[in-house]
């Protein structure tokens, strides 16, 4: 049986107690995206400053409220993507969702046509792996993925705005 210590690893409680990259960025130039967890009412805002030339996430700030799992996941996410390229950030999103057992293919047994394992080879989740225990508590998966889905939406919106 999954116990509380599977869920609340020390590193998670640390990010929860002292969250990284909290605050806001001026919009524009930064881009703001809001995410909602309809289950518990948590709200998060992700501010992204993406350099359109280098394609790097130059800065990221987070505001909003949430439980320890969502706060910690958000804090870790902000650390993980800061300074990375948009491409790397997208790969991290996929890797994190895979960690949460959320596969892009819609139905069990159905492949989305890409080899996820090969795709994600070499992606290092580091501290984020501490969140793996969440999978044993299915209702909490949405808490852990809220920030990541919001990040994904933000990157999509920025991508759509960029001249191509």
């Amino acid at each position: 049986m999954a116990g509380l210590e599977d869920l609340y690893r020390e590193i998670i409680l640390d990010h929860y107690r002292s969250p990284r990259n909290r605050g806001e960025l001026a919009v524009p130039p930064a881009h703001k995206t809001e995410g909602f967890n309809p289950l518990c009412g948590d709200e998060v805002a992700v501010y992204l400053d993406v350099d359109s030339v280098s394609g790097l996430v130059v800065d990221i700030k987070i505001s909003g409220q949430g439980c320890s799992i969502s706060q910690a996941s958000t804090s870790m996410m902000s650390d993980a993507v800061k300074g990375k390229s948009v491409e790397e950030a997208r790969l991290l999103i996929r890797a994190f969702k895979a960690l949460m057992s959320i596969h892009e293919s819609k139905l069990e047994g159905e492949s989305d046509g890409t080899d996820l394992a090969a795709d994600l080879e070499g992606v290092r989740l580091g501290d984020l792996e501490a969140l793996q225990g969440v999978v044993k508590f299915p209702v909490r998966i949405k808490c852990a993925t809220l920030a990541w889905n919001t990040l994904q939406q933000g990157l999509d919106e920025i991508g759509a705005e960029l001249p191509n």
């Binding site: 518990c40 948590d42 439980c67 799992i69």
Partner: peptide, 12 residues
């Protein structure tokens, strides 16, 4: 302390 976290510990 967030309500979600309280409920999780109570569930134990």
């Amino acid at each position: 302390i967030h309500a979600h976290d309280i409920s999780q510990v109570l569930d134990e």
